[in-house]
Structure formats: structure tokens, C-alpha cells
């Protein structure tokens, strides 16, 4: 028996909007720790890891570990039917091939339930070892989103270079080149507007902008994004989900032949 009640239902709506275009089908894993997911895009270049900790739910009942295969497009369709202020409850019985989403309006005057078919998904699970990152950049998520969108109108790839001076995002395309430098700036009034760089050594890596742009669909989940970079390792783009957990995207770099 599984029953998860999330008062801030809009979080789950935002999570689905953030990942549904990257991954078609995925297994949601439910355990005492929380509600989680790990899935790769079809080309195995990018990976999304989601964790919503059990403590973040108003009610969290998961009698035994359960993996539920869902089509994310269909799940997003169902969650779109929930209001932004609705409380969302997920329910599934042991051995059932369906999951039920229940939506309650804040005033309890409208209660809906949507039942969705589960599917068997043979997904590959990757072990991601703890890594020491050469550079960690923390910046406003809206700024990062803007940069990825702007650069993708010029080129297909972005070179992210971190030095003591700041973080540089560069691209080149048929019409020309672009460089955007964000300097460390932790003297702003609001902490969510700061750009903070922790660096042990300079790093420069190339990534496909198409994926970066897809990751920025998680912007509504957090005002801050963290980029963790190391030479010859996938970048980790993390959006923290307040009081609940995180959504992390891993993207393999492009490497010169």
C-alpha cells in the first residue's frame, strides 16, 4: 500500500514539466527515504535524478519498496488537471497495475481522482560515484536559463569555462560568436541573486545546448541553480526543491577528437 500526500501539489506539477520532454518513460521508486527517480534520455547522454524526501510529505505511507513505471507525458497530462493550489495524493495498492492521483482544492470543495495505467519499464540504473568537482558555480536559475536560451539562438554547443575571474559561457555558429561572463558577486542584497564560484582549478567543458535548455525547464522549482564541473566528467546541474530534495541533471561533455 502506497499513499503519499503532498500539500504543495504544484511541486509535483513542476517536476513533471521539468522532465517530461527529456525522458519518455521512467520508474518512480518509493521507499522509506522518499519518492525518487533516475532516468536517462533515449540517447543516454543526459540523466535526471529526482528525490522528494518522505519528510516533505504531509502523509507518507510506503509499506514496502515499490517501483512504478510511468509514461511521463501521460503523468504530466493528468497532473495538469490539478490546480496550482491543490493538494495531491498518490495512491497505489500492492500488486496493482494502476496509480491514482487525487486532487483536493484548498477549500475541500472539489475532489478529483485520476487513475493512470502503470507500465513495465526495463530501465538501466547508473551508479554515480561521489566526485570532487573542480568548480562549483551557484547562480540565479533565471539567469542561467536566459543564458542557455540566448546562446542557443547563435550556436549548438556551449563552452563553460570557470576561472577565478568568473564563469564564461561561449558559443559559435554560422552567424558569429558569443561570450557571456558572469563574475562572482556575493554582495547583492538577496542571496538568491548572488553568483558564487568555488574553484580548486580552472575547468573548461563543452556541452550540447539542446540538453542544457531542456534542464532549464526546472527553473520554476528553485531560484538558484548549481553547476558542478570537473574536467572529463559530466556536469551536474542541480535545482534544490525547498524542504524536499532536489532534481539533478547529469550531462556528458563533448570531447575533441
Amino acid at each position: 500500500m502506497l499513499e503519499l500526500r503532498l500539500v504543495q501539489g504544484s511541486l509535483l506539477k513542476k517536476v513533471l514539466e521539468a522532465i517530461k520532454d527529456l525522458v519518455n518513460d521512467a520508474n518512480f521508486d518509493c521507499s522509506a527515504t522518499g519518492f525518487s527517480l533516475q532516468a536517462m534520455d533515449s540517447s543516454h547522454v543526459a540523466l535526471v535524478a529526482l528525490l522528494l524526501r518522505s519528510e516533505g510529505f504531509e502523509h507518507y505511507r510506503c509499506d514496502r519498496n515499490l517501483s512504478m513505471g510511468m509514461n511521463l507525458g501521460n503523468m504530466a497530462k493528468m497532473l495538469k488537471c490539478a490546480g496550482n493550489d491543490d493538494i495531491i495524493t498518490l495512491k497505489a495498492d500492492d500488486g496493482s497495475d494502476t496509480v491514482t492521483f487525487m486532487f483536493e482544492s484548498p477549500t475541500q470543495d472539489k475532489i478529483s481522482d485520476f487513475e493512470m495505467k502503470l507500465m513495465d519499464i526495463d530501465s538501466e540504473h547508473l551508479g554515480i560515484p561521489e566526485a570532487e568537482y573542480h568548480a562549483i558555480v551557484r547562480m540565479p536559475s533565471s539567469e542561467f536559463g536566459r543564458i542557455c536560451k540566448d546562446l542557443s539562438s547563435i550556436g549548438d554547443t556551449v563552452v563553460i569555462s570557470v576561472t577565478k575571474e568568473g564563469v564564461k559561457f561561449s558559443t559559435r555558429g554560422d552567424i558569429g560568436t558569443a561570450n557571456i561572463v558572469c563574475r562572482q558577486n556575493n554582495t547583492v542584497d538577496k542571496p538568491e541573486e548572488a553568483t558564487i564560484i568555488e574553484m580548486t582549478e580552472p575547468v573548461s567543458l563543452t556541452f550540447a545546448l539542446r540538453y542544457m535548455n531542456s534542464f532549464t525547464k526546472a527553473t520554476p522549482l528553485s531560484s538558484i541553480v548549481t553547476l558542478s564541473l570537473s574536467s572529463d566528467l559530466p556536469v551536474v546541474v542541480e535545482y534544490k526543491i525547498a524542504e524536499m530534495g532536489y532534481i539533478r541533471f547529469y550531462l556528458a561533455p563533448k570531447i575533441e577528437e
Binding site: 540517447s43 543516454h44 547508473l126 551508479g127 554547443t157 559530466p234 547529469y250 570531447i255 575533441e256
Partner: peptide, 14 residues
């Protein structure tokens, strides 16, 4: 042009 790597070149399958 740089080549796109695959995640399995960095992480192992469990």
C-alpha cells in the same frame, strides 16, 4: 567538431 560522449563512459550500470 567535438564528439558527444555517452554517460556510460563515465558511470557504471548497477
Amino acid at each position: 567538431t567535438p564528439l558527444q560522449n555517452n554517460l556510460s563512459e563515465f558511470y557504471f550500470t548497477t
